[in-house]
Simulated scan of single mutants.
Amino acid sequence: MFKPTIHVAIALLFHQNKVLVGWREAKQHQGNKHEFPGGKVEAGESPVAACRREVFEEVGIGLQHWHAFDVICHEYDDVIVNLHIFHAAVPTALLKDIQVPWAWFSRSQLLDLNFPQANRAILQRLVWPKAIKISEDLSLLSSLPKEKLLYWRVEPTAEQKMELIQYCVEQLGQVIINLELWKQLNPMQQQAVAAIHLKQSQLMQLQKGDLKVGLRYIAACHDIVSAQHAQQIGCEAILLSPVLPTATHTDATALGWEKFQQITELVDIPVFALGGLTQDDLAVAEQHHAYGIAGVRFI
Results as ranks from 00 to 15, higher is better:
282 L>N: 00
64 Q>W: 12
186 N>W: 11
184 Q>L: 14
264 T>N: 04
119 N>I: 04
273 A>Y: 00
85 I>S: 10
55 V>C: 14
176 I>R: 00
21 V>Y: 02
287 Q>T: 06
237 A>S: 11
84 H>Y: 14
259 K>V: 13
112 D>S: 14
218 I>W: 00
203 L>M: 04
295 G>D: 00
97 D>C: 08
182 W>I: 11
77 D>C: 08
241 S>L: 03
29 H>N: 13
199 K>N: 13
45 E>L: 06
72 I>G: 04
278 T>P: 06
91 P>F: 02
100 V>L: 14
64 Q>K: 15
135 S>Y: 00
57 E>V: 13
1 M>C: 08
270 P>S: 02
276 G>T: 10
65 H>M: 10
122 I>W: 07
114 N>S: 14
220 A>T: 11
150 L>H: 02
284 V>A: 10
110 L>Q: 03
110 L>E: 03
279 Q>M: 09
259 K>L: 14
187 P>A: 08
31 G>W: 08
88 A>H: 13
33 K>Q: 15
34 H>F: 09
210 D>M: 03
226 S>V: 01
149 L>D: 03
271 V>Y: 01
253 T>M: 13
140 L>K: 12
182 W>E: 10
262 Q>I: 07
42 E>W: 10
37 P>I: 11
233 I>D: 03
192 A>E: 04
106 S>G: 12
292 G>P: 01
151 Y>R: 01
258 E>R: 13
66 W>A: 04
267 V>P: 03
244 L>D: 03
253 T>D: 13
8 V>T: 15
144 L>C: 06
43 A>M: 11
91 P>W: 05
87 H>A: 09
296 V>R: 12
299 I>C: 04
295 G>F: 00
121 A>Q: 15
270 P>D: 01
292 G>V: 00
204 M>E: 05
94 L>W: 06
223 D>K: 05
154 V>H: 01
44 G>S: 02
237 A>L: 02
15 H>T: 09
104 W>F: 02
217 Y>H: 04
45 E>N: 05
17 N>R: 09
15 H>D: 07
63 L>S: 04
238 I>P: 00
63 L>T: 10
284 V>C: 07
191 Q>I: 03
114 N>C: 14
22 G>H: 09
1 M>W: 11
160 Q>I: 06
44 G>H: 05
34 H>A: 07
198 L>D: 02
231 Q>D: 05
31 G>D: 11
233 I>P: 05
177 I>E: 07
255 L>I: 10
38 G>F: 04
209 G>T: 06
173 G>W: 06
78 D>P: 08
